[in-house]
Amino acid sequence: MALDSTSTPRGRGTACNPGNRFAATHSEAFDDGWQQEVPTCQATEVRFEQARSVISRNRSPDLGFDRSVNPYRGCEHGCIYCFARPTHAYWDLSPGIDFETRLIAKSNLAERLEEELSRPGYRPRPIALGINTDAYQPLERELRLTRQALEVLLRFRHPVHLVTKSSLILRDLDLLSAMAEQRLVSVAVSLTTLDNSLKCIMEPRAASPSARVRVMRRLDEAGVPVGIICAPVIPMINDMELEHLLEAARGAGATSAGYILLRLPYEVAGLFEDWLARHFPERAGHVMSLVRQTRGGQVYDSRFGSRMRGEGVFAELLGQRFRLASKRFGFSRRDEAWALDSSRFSPPGQQLGLF
């Protein structure tokens, strides 16, 4: 049953709970005359998983990495636009509020990661840590799975790239600084708006914009390569902030920049449209019209090469704005941030060849 979409629990991105698209049957809420109150808040539930493997591979030409590690499934940040929401359906959970409140933690992450890195045939290339869901979401403060993974990677001298919108990453500044000295780490901070009011309804449990700018500054001061990722850029919601976001990040020490146009795969489209209707009813139609213009008349286009940037006049103008602003503020290309050193890789206990 879906919660009443007109009343979002406090601190959550949505109240909707669309059915699992893989389920054989679906339930539908209806008014039976018995008044039921929607809870004003909803607690987070955590289940623990013994993962059989933790390094995921991909062949996408749109990404700057071919492998990733995700300590958690689901994300408490509650970002309404999150492209990872549909993955919750694979666990018989909803991409809606279940994605924000019913999380799965890989309790044996560090052990599995060490096993996979120690295999004789393993060849190192940078690992993207926490790409599907934020590795520094609030649950990490207690479980410390991300920190454990970084400890393994540092011990193996394995390069890693992190993307986060959490200030919790500063807790691990000791590890990140040590890795940076060996060119083993780079960080991209996701910054979508400088308007805290917008942040609160779009990314309810993520760090404030000012906190994310402070994270960039602290990382830069510690010698950790840091960049900004403006993702997603949403037409008529935050696209007008693009240049301001880049300027703020550059002033805080960010040296690389990237952006991604709003993506609405599977159930994300319905969740996002419901969110628009509740928070921006006067411009919801215009926003979705522009989204369709960038996606060939549809709400989403999954084709490689266009899914991250879109097409059409709006997408082209956005790309021009980004390139001009990046040049003006002196940013380097994002792919340069991936120039980490894989040659230092040294699994503990394995004797290196003499020749």
Rank of each mutant, 00 (worst) to 15 (best):
W275T: 10
R323E: 03
Q35S: 15
F272T: 04
P9G: 05
N108Y: 01
A110I: 00
T133V: 01
L245I: 11
S5W: 04
L352K: 07
Q293H: 03
G33D: 01
F30W: 15
R125Q: 13
G11K: 05
T6M: 13
R250P: 14
G78N: 00
A277T: 13
S208D: 09
L352C: 00
D335Y: 14
I228H: 04
D66W: 03
E203R: 15
L246K: 04
A2P: 12
K199V: 02
D335V: 13
Y72D: 01
D62G: 05
L176C: 14
L113F: 02
A15C: 04
G285D: 13
L184N: 10
L290S: 07
L175A: 07
A24M: 11
S177D: 06
C16Y: 02
R67Y: 07
R344K: 13
L198R: 09
P9T: 08
R147Q: 04
A128K: 05
T255Y: 01
A277E: 15
G319T: 02
D98A: 14
C79V: 08
D134T: 02
S346G: 03
R67K: 13
S94L: 09
L63F: 03
R321G: 12
P95A: 00
E140F: 03
L198H: 05
I97T: 08
W275R: 03
P124E: 02
